[in-house]
Design a protein around this nucleic acid. Structure first.
Length: 806
RNA sequence: GGGCGCGUAGCUCAGCGGGAGAGCACUCGCUUCACACGCGAGGGGUCGCUGGUUCGAUCCCAGCCGCGCCCACCA
């Protein structure tokens, strides 16, 4: 194949992606030997498309997977999708709306059918995009959280929890999204600063006179008030506790109670208690046995035991009515503007309505306790380590999980009711009520929170609850890599579910990767128009360059996106391509190598050093270090010095040098492959007598013997410079010709500006070491090892200087 | 309100107790037979501010200023 001077990744990459997959090189075989290395991909939403976070995470995971595959591990990278309850339902509902149909008109069964149709047509495109990035997932093992087998796992999990007694049904306060028409979890609530009015209203004493003032941002909820609370130590109100006040508009007599949770500093120090519409009030209400009234319905409209003329109004309209009423009755004390954070549905952006509703819950205490123990005993390591405590703190403050959702798309709860209202929980539809034996069972309409099924991902994809060869072989896995906002939603729940159902944490390391922000520092988001499509980057620069650039950018914290590292990756691919042209262009290649030339010993030592850095970086998940080491070993060591040094020998047709150059290039390709798989495989395929694939080639051993031979570096530098200039003698300007004539020596080792620079460096080092050792306080106070180290360095520098000056 | 992180060259970032670095950008020189997506040489930084610890601080500690993220039931 002709090697053009300009490397064009387009076409080459797709070709290798097809080959690798068709040749079965991505496939994980549980029958094969070897230590296992397993990563389950965070399942993307089935409706989703590749965004920057996916691309970065794909680059990270694939680098780890390819590295381990080359090291001989039995490697599984598990692909698949999440059904993403709310998100998917919203997508299909939107499409229906365009057709002028509502989901209610269509009915549940037809709607779910419609979702499946949509998925068959448009779903899952992201897996093709992972392929385009070069991700070596075992695509034959693709799983979906709505697969029949996966649904069984979800049902088993629910029933398991039910039998443990941890599942319960209760009227409790939930985050209600009136737009999505479902409860959502705390983790799907986004707090946004909002300008509200704080309304101060006076509640008269039932016995007449005075009363007590409270502040509220939601006057409409006054209609659901069941008490007024003050702090027990608040002397202003000590005489009022136990008395009754009258709730405005509805005229209900409610008690004044004392509770520690009231902040005497805020507002008037007295707070109206509305258990039906406020989370804190709900808890206070439960502790004081107060009724839980709701006046705002699931549709966001006023309802319940309120004046008829208010029924059906929006909350805002009702608030206006209440404020007017207060004003007329002279119970309105003041209104002031008030800025505070209010929960919004992160999907629809709608303001959350906290309200009491009948839902299914999981008591998480026991599972959390096991997870806490596991985390505290260090059975899972977070990268960066600071996230360990974040995960732990959340587990320690865990609350019951509202798992029921009022949606149609998802795993319907395995709960059936008989005519008498008894509950039967079973994995499959029961014939009769477990309690009374009655028939005519109806199934609960709700579906499970999407994350309930996600919690099972690492093992349900391997066949659990069945005892499969894959499950036995590949569980527990090794690494899980995700974005930071997923720690609670997913990581912690996988840890809890894995411990509960299989007794082991699904992975030993959790990578929380950087968030890549837009160049201006804002979040990348479609709605803000700040998103950058990784597929565009791949189309322009190639998957290798994109992978390299993303890894180079990533670090322990968030980073701003910049195209520069990706362009750097593109140059690296091109450079590699061209140095391969040089090496492979040599006429003949010898089969055996005996004596090694100094430059070969030198490049071997440099590759050893680079390999150590790459291993170190991959092992510690510091991918920007890996990219950095690869860039410098390729450009600085391999191309600028080694290739330049051997050029004359290559031109002369020295087969021995050419053979060694090929061997050295092979090793470089192996180091680069986990990050830049395509260009390295393409070059590999053109090496002499190469039939196997680089993707399946063994990672090289470190040579190790030449690591201490750094002085050769100087000889190489000199030689390279001489050769380089020798080749262009004719085109040098007079000044360069003067330098050229000065440096060319028959033995190819001569003083040069490069050696001068090295001498200057050593002189500086010697001066610094001498200064420190002359510092009496340093010698007296510093650690003895440090002083010794300085002495040794000084001696070494002096010896090197001596050698150079020969 | 709680927690975490970041402010180092024009830009994006690495370094984290004894010489201030990389890539890009910039300047100068090269139509060099692997590569102009190249090669060589070079300019550019009081390492956010103020104190403290130390023989020595970009690096450790405290405070301040600026920026960001996560979590959060003060109405």
């Amino acid at each position: 194949m002709e090697m053009e001077p300009l490397y064009r990744p387009q076409g080459v990459e797709e070709r290798w992606q097809r080959s690798w997959e068709e040749e079965g090189l991505y496939r994980a075989d549980s029958e094969q030997p070897g230590d296992t290395y397993v990563i389950a991909v965070p399942p993307p939403n089935v409706t989703g498309a590749l965004h920057m976070g996916h691309a970065l995470n794909g680059a990270i995971q694939d680098a780890l997977i390819r590295w381990h595959r080359m090291r001989g591990f039995n490697t599984l990278w598990q692909p698949g999708f999440d059904h993403a309850g709310i998100a998917t339902q919203a997508v299909v509902e939107k499409e229906l709306r365009r057709e002028g149909v509502s989901r209610l008109e269509l009915g549940r069964e037809a709607f779910v059918e419609r979702v499946w149709e949509w998925l068959h047509e448009y779903g899952g495109v992201i897996m093709g995009q992972f392929r385009r990035l070069g991700c070596s997932l075992d695509y034959e093992r693709e799983r979906f959280t709505m697969d029949e087998a996966y649904v069984r796992a979800v049902m088993r999990f629910f029933v398991h929890l039910y039998e443990r007694g941890w599942i319960f049904r209760d009227n409790r306060i939930v985050n209600w999204c009136s737009d999505c028409r479902t409860s959502i979890s705390d983790l799907e609530v986004e707090h946004i600063e909002v300008d509200d009015a704080l309304t101060y209203a006076r509640y008269p004493l039932a016995e007449g006179g005075g009363g007590i003032s409270v502040a509220t941002v939601r006057p409409a909820t006054i209609l659901a008030d069941v008490a007024v609370a003050v702090h027990p130590g608040d002397e202003r109100y000590s005489g009022l506790v136990g008395k009754e006040v009258v709730v405005p508009v509805v005229g209900r007599r409610v008690p004044v109670i004392a509770d520690e949770r009231v902040d005497p500093e805020f507002g008037t120090g007295a707070v109206k208690i509305t258990p039906g519409h406020d989370p804190m009030d709900f808890e206070i209400g439960r502790d004081h046995d107060l009724p839980e009234l709701t006046v705002i319905g699931l549709d966001g409209r006023m309802t319940g035991d309120i004046p008829d003329k208010l029924v059906g109004l929006t909350e805002e309209e009702a608030a206006e009515y209440v404020v007017d009423w207060l004003r007329q009755e002279q119970l309105l004390e003041k209104r002031e503007s008030y800025r505070h954070a209010v929960g919004h549905c992160e999907r629809s952006g709608t303001r959350i309505q906290p309200l009491v509703s009948l839902q299914w819950w999981v008591d998480m205490d026991s599972m959390a306790a096991r997870a806490i123990e596991a985390l505290e005993s260090g059975r899972v390591t977070f990268h960066p380590p600071s996230q360990h405590r974040v995960a732990l703190d959340w587990l320690k403050a865990i609350r019951p999980w509202n798992v029921s959702r009022q949606l149609w798309w998802g795993h319907q709860l395995p709960i059936w009711y008989c005519a008498d209202g008894h509950v039967t929980c079973a994995e499959t539809e029961p014939d009769a009520c477990a309690e009374c034996g009655g028939g005519g069972l109806t199934r609960d309409e709700d579906v499970l929170d999407t994350w309930f099924s996600s919690a099972l991902w690492p093992f349900a994809t391997l066949g659990w609850p069945d005892d499969t060869p894959s499950l036995r072989r590949y569980y527990p896995g090794n690494v899980n890599s995700t974005a930071r906002e997923i720690i609670f939603l997913w990581e912690n729940r996988m840890i809890m579910a894995g411990l509960e159902l299989l007794g082991e944490i699904p992975f030993s390391d959790v990578i929380i990767h950087s968030t890549i922000l837009a160049p201006d520092g804002r979040r990348m988001s479609k709605s803000l128009g700040t998103g950058i499509d990784p597929l565009d980057l791949i189309a322009e620069h190639g998957a290798d360059a994109t992978r390299y650039g993303l890894l180079k950018m990533s670090s322990g914290h968030d980073v701003r996106f910049s195209a520069q590292p990706i362009e750097e990756g593109r140059r690296l691919a091109n450079k590699l391509w061209n140095v391969a042209r040089l090496v492979l262009g040599a006429t003949e290649v010898a089969a055996a190598f005996s004596a090694e030339l100094p430059e070969e010993r030198w490049i071997t030592a440099r590759l050893d050093a680079a390999q150590a850095q790459v291993i170190d970086g991959l092992s510690s998940f510091e991918f920007s270090r890996v990219a950095d080491a690869l860039y410098h070993v390729t450009f600085d060591d391999f191309c600028d010095w080694y290739a330049e040094a051997i050029k004359p020998a290559l031109y002369e047709g020295d087969a021995r040098v050419a053979g060694m150059a090929v061997a050295t290039l092979e090793r470089l390709l192996k180091l680069l492959h986990p990050v830049m798989p395509h260009v390295t495989e393409e070059i590999w395929s053109q090496l002499p007598a190469r039939r196997s694939r680089l993707i399946a080639a063994p990672w090289p051993d470190v040579h190790g013997s030449y690591a201490e031979e750094q002085p050769w570096f100087e000889r190489i530098q000199v030689a390279a410079e001489v050769f380089r200039r020798a080749g262009v003698r004719g085109s040098l300007d007079p000044e360069q010709a003067r330098i050229f004539d000065a440096v060319v020596k028959p033995d190819r080792v001569a003083p040069s500006t490069t050696v001068d620079a090295e001498i200057a460096r050593l002189e500086r080092e010697i001066e610094r070491a001498e200064r420190m050792l002359a510092n009496e306080k340093f010698v007296a106070n510093a650690a003895p090892e440090a002083v010794d180290a300085e002495r040794r360095k000084l001696a070494q520098y002096r010896a090197e200087l001596e050698a150079l000056r020969d």
